[in-house]
Design a protein around this nucleic acid. Sequence first.
DNA 1: GGAGGGTATCAACACCCTGTCGAGCGATTC
DNA 2: GAATCGCTCGACAGGGTGTTGATACCCTCC
Lengths: 223, 223
Amino acid sequence: MSGTGGAVRGRRAPVGRGDERRPSGDDRQRAILETAERLLEERPLAAISIDDLARGAGISRPTFYFYFGGKEDVLLTLLDRMAAEVGERLAALPPEPGDDAPAWWRQVLGVFVDVFLGHRAVSRVLAEARATNPRLRAEWADLLEGWVGSTAAVLERERRRGAAAPGLDAREAALALNLLNERVLAAVVSGESPAPAEHGVLDLLAGVWLAVLYPAPDRTLRA
Amino acid sequence: MSGTGGAVRGRRAPVGRGDERRPSGDDRQRAILETAERLLEERPLAAISIDDLARGAGISRPTFYFYFGGKEDVLLTLLDRMAAEVGERLAALPPEPGDDAPAWWRQVLGVFVDVFLGHRAVSRVLAEARATNPRLRAEWADLLEGWVGSTAAVLERERRRGAAAPGLDAREAALALNLLNERVLAAVVSGESPAPAEHGVLDLLAGVWLAVLYPAPDRTLRA
DNA sequence: GGAGGGTATCAACACCCTGTCGAGCGATTC
DNA sequence: GAATCGCTCGACAGGGTGTTGATACCCTCC
């Protein structure tokens, strides 16, 4: 949860007190965000200039810089929103796998699938921007870290209670599985040419996760 | 194998006939390629201008364009080389898993680990450039397609001969595993903050692959 | 009810990077 | 010795980024 927080520069108070709308406000930010998400549906980040964002929000380029430090900040805000949604939905789930462990894991994976597929534009831009942008990379690293930690913790408890046979180092396995999610969902959302079928992606991820988390107990693995 | 081929524009004959070296030739190309790989060790692709590449190779920017169509072409050439190395080393392996299937898969995965870790600069740039560059994306898609096809074919034969229990759709599982490789190796090679330990990455990948390819026969999976 | 201060806006600028055009230069060929 | 071809670069046009300085707006406080 948490994250480095917002990314906005200016703006103190929303000003508008009554119900009569003013032509400006902090919905400029919203306008920029919406423009960004809309344009990202159409073309990759690299093909979107700050001028496009500004014009889309009805302002000039320098004014854009009043609200955001650059494309970077816009993306960070978009990412934070998506991450928050994942966090909320995960928090609403039972905290541990019960009798039906496969169903529980499936629910968890469903959250990722739902949210990422529900914000295709943001998901798609992630891989592209993370490569270039240190702040975004750090933010994503934090999120991943959190998910990996939770995954590893649950797996260790599953092993301790005898529900899962020991195997790979729990943390490394958890990391690999989360990276798998990231890459597979990116492929789906970007419409890559070898990509899993969208309607089957939850089955696919669940299949891999369960095979790794609850392996055949006699599998030979050297440390 | 194959791929879309080279990416070079000009150059007909190397000209240099005897043993006396001329100041120019087609080793200009090599100089550019070497400069690219060297600079990519230090900083991301976005921070390398064509002028950097040209100067590094001792030529001017317009001259660079005589040899390559842009950064894109340089990257494509670098990628083709790496892919060729993977192809050769895979071809030198036994074509099917024998009695010791885990060892065979481990050898296959070792090729990817070795080659990707041996060309860190190229591996690192892949994720970054694939997002922006259609040609590179297509080329990588082809390569992935090939590996996924081979993986799926072997898995199906393993299932037919009874060595592997049926489970996930073979092709989708193969795709997921190859995407896993890509993402995990990228994390290692880029020194990301949650990244698997480099010395253990082969064990990790092998563990996941084997768990997925040879699952416990009673695992419950709905279609 | 006019002075003052934060809020918000943009034209214009300096800079960097890309890709292209056209002129030039050295060697080879006839 | 002139036509040709491979190779090279200075200089340009175009587009992107980020900043600066002038300005207009609104609120508030005296």
